[in-house]
């Protein structure tokens, strides 16, 4: 990996910490009277969205604009892409426009990877098919660190090499060593889960996936995490529980029998939330299916970080854009 962010696997622990610490510094910008830095003035960031995702696009747009980059939004709908233009031709068009970075969301796994072969600028993967969504994992890691550090929350008696409590209120400098994260739901089709497993384990967290076996990838045993099928058994040991969106159309493909059964076995309601330790937090990458994988009172509870995740999305993406574009082009 050189000048792109395509997979969370591209990030070393030091890379990841640098992004999180840069984001921690940039979080202060949002509180200033002028929420804008001149850093990327004259640079062009293209948001290339082949899939509708208003929240991700807006987050990247806000991040780029706060760094004074010029932002061009290119959505597939109604464009030449909808008329059958290939990804390669689109890439060549962006190249001709002088894009310094391309933020790409695409329904095909590997699209960001392919694009990176055809453009000179940096490619940031904003979600490719059922592969990865690395900036989501970064903002999730940032949110975990921030919330647990603020709460001083890693329980006593556990061997945590770099205790988040010593890191100060924003967790700066700390990794997630020993933090137990349980990710629940559709891992098979979930790019968020894939990126989170890679990034959180790089940062030292202990990740457990909980899902019906049909929604876990083949060979998940080779991933750097453990796997469970019983949510109630995992919750009491969790510092963080991350609920993934479950798409109802999965039901028709026989991944699970009914929504009711899914909710009973894998949904997080107030009763289940009570199984969590007092300090534990509840995350969801959004958009949520209230009443499906997460009950409304859980989503709105003080444990929920859903709103923090959105706010942190902008600062983490600022950090990524700054670190990719803020300096000279990488030599190698």
């Amino acid at each position: 990996m050189k000048r792109h962010l395509i997979s969370a696997a591209d990030l070393t622990r030091d890379d990841a910490l640098l992004i999180l610490d840069t984001a921690a510094e940039l979080a202060g910008v949002a509180a200033r009277p002028i929420k804008k830095l001149p850093t990327l003035r004259g640079r062009t960031v293209v948001n290339l969205f082949f899939e509708d995702s208003t929240r991700t696009r807006i987050s990247f747009e806000a991040a780029a604009k706060r760094l004074s980059a010029d932002v061009i939004n290119f959505s597939a709908k109604g464009s030449s892409v909808a008329k059958g233009e290939s990804l390669k031709d689109t890439a060549l068009t962006l190249e001709a426009m002088g894009a310094d970075a391309v933020v790409i969301r695409h329904s095909a796994s590997g699209a960001a990877h392919r694009l990176a072969e055809w453009v000179r600028g940096s490619v940031v993967n904003a979600g490719d098919g059922t592969h990865e969504h690395p900036t989501q994992a970064l903002l999730d890691a940032f949110t975990i660190r921030q919330r647990l550090a603020r709460q001083g929350a890693v329980p006593d008696g556990r061997d945590v090499p770099h205790d988040l409590r010593d890191a100060g209120p924003d967790g700066r400098g700390a990794a997630l060593d020993g933090v137990r994260v349980t990710i629940v739901g559709d891992v098979l089709h979930g790019r968020v889960a894939r990126s989170n497993v890679l990034l959180l384990s790089t940062l030292g967290a202990e990740v457990t996936l909980v899902a019906p076996p049909t929604l876990l990838p083949f060979a998940v045993g080779s991933w750097p995490c453990s796997v469970g099928y019983d949510l109630d058994a995992e919750l009491p040991k969790s510092d963080v529980v991350m609920m993934l969106r479950v798409q109802q159309e999965r039901m028709t493909a026989a991944y699970f029998p009914t929504i009711r059964e899914y909710r009973r076995r894998y949904g997080l309601d107030a009763g289940r939330m009570a199984l969590l330790p007092g300090h534990a937090i509840v995350m969801h990458p959004g958009p949520m299916n209230r009443g499906m994988e997460i009950a409304a009172d859980v989503a709105d509870s003080p444990r929920s970080t859903v709103v923090d995740q959105v706010a942190n999305g902008v600062t983490v993406r600022m950090a990524v854009l700054y670190l990719l574009l803020g300096g000279a082009e990488a030599a190698s």
Binding site: S109, G110, G129, H131, E132, P217, F218, A219, V220, W223
Partner: peptide, 17 residues
């Protein structure tokens, strides 16, 4: 898209068992 196995799981490509 690809042989169902460790690689397809990692790459997020639908498996061909």
């Amino acid at each position: 898209q690809l042989n169902e196995g460790e690689v397809s799981g990692r790459l997020g490509l639908a498996g061909w068992p």
